[in-house]
Design a protein around this nucleic acid. Structure first.
Length: 254
DNA sequence: ACTATTTGACCTAT
DNA sequence: ATAGGTCAAATAGT
């Protein structure tokens, strides 16, 4: 059973893939220009950002309902302090945690962030940077993220998202940011993006393993390739090129 | 002047 | 005592 939230996230992913397909056709036809490709690229990035934003959705039913149950089942085996710390880390009270390893330092995640610190991490060559939502004060948004370079060649940055966004800022796009491409030629529910699977899985993962293994998506960047799949192409017709289309669709979701 | 970033100090958990 | 996370004054950029 797919929830409404999952459906919307899937719609956004399909939209992104539709644009990727359109971009592919343009490239194959040699119709390459910033005018024709930029809107497509922007929409692809925004679609994925929008889909990711659902992961942080406070209304995500599977997370609130079942993750609490999972937590409760594990609490009996842990001290209250341990549980409190674990909660602070990630799991309880609607907090959503998601880790992304990307070849870019600032993946376009649809939100704007303000840096508030950095630390040298023991055993790591690179400092960890701490960001909080730009609207942390204005809208009491408690979302934060940590970015740390974990590989040099090729450069890979690990971004760990903590807390949930309650601000109204969505889909802020910045062309200087890169993106992580996703392969669509496998089972969508399990292989494309682990963060789109049920939060149950995340909670269990975090309990059974150390926090360092939460949603670890450390992959070779060559794994992130968009493939053409006739099934998805049939599910998603060619997408009109428009910078505003995505925001309009967001409004429609409200 | 306003906003964002830097960075040493401070706090908390282990 | 140490490590990781946050604060806040100083600084830089616009």
């Amino acid at each position: 059973m797919v929830s409404n939230i999952d459906h919307k996230a899937m719609e956004a992913l399909l939209r992104g893939q539709g644009c990727a397909n359109s971009l592919k056709i343009l490239l194959e036809n040699g119709e390459i220009s910033s005018v024709s490709t930029k809107p497509l690229i922007n929409t692809i990035l925004d679609s994925f950002s929008f889909a990711l934003s659902f992961v942080d959705s406070p209304n995500h039913p599977p997370y609130h309902e079942s993750s609490s149950q999972n937590m409760a089942s594990h609490m009996s085996r842990r001290s209250s302090k341990q549980v409190q710390h674990r909660r602070k880390l990630c799991v309880a009270e609607g907090l959503v945690n998601y880790r992304d390893d990307s070849p870019t330092m600032c993946p376009n995640d649809g939100f704007t962030w303000r840096k508030y610190g950095q630390k040298t991490i023991k055993g790591s060559l690179h400092k960890r940077c701490y960001y909080r939502c730009t609207y942390a004060k204005d809208q009491n948004c408690n979302a934060t993220k940590q970015v740390q370079k974990i590989k040099d060649n090729p450069p890979v940055y690990r971004t760990t998202y903590l807390g949930k966004h309650v601000c109204k800022a969505v889909a802020v796009h910045d062309d200087t940011y890169g993106s992580t491409m996703i392969r669509f030629d496998q089972d969508v529910s399990e292989s494309i993006m682990p963060q789109l699977t049920t939060i149950d899985h995340q909670a269990i993962t975090m309990e059974e393993n150390s926090a360092d293994h939460i949603m670890n998506q450390e992959c070779d960047i060559n794994d992130y390739l968009v493939g053409y799949d006739p099934f998805w192409a049939s599910q998603f017709p060619p997408f009109p090129s428009s910078d505003t289309m995505f925001l309009e669709n967001i409004a429609a979701f409200d």
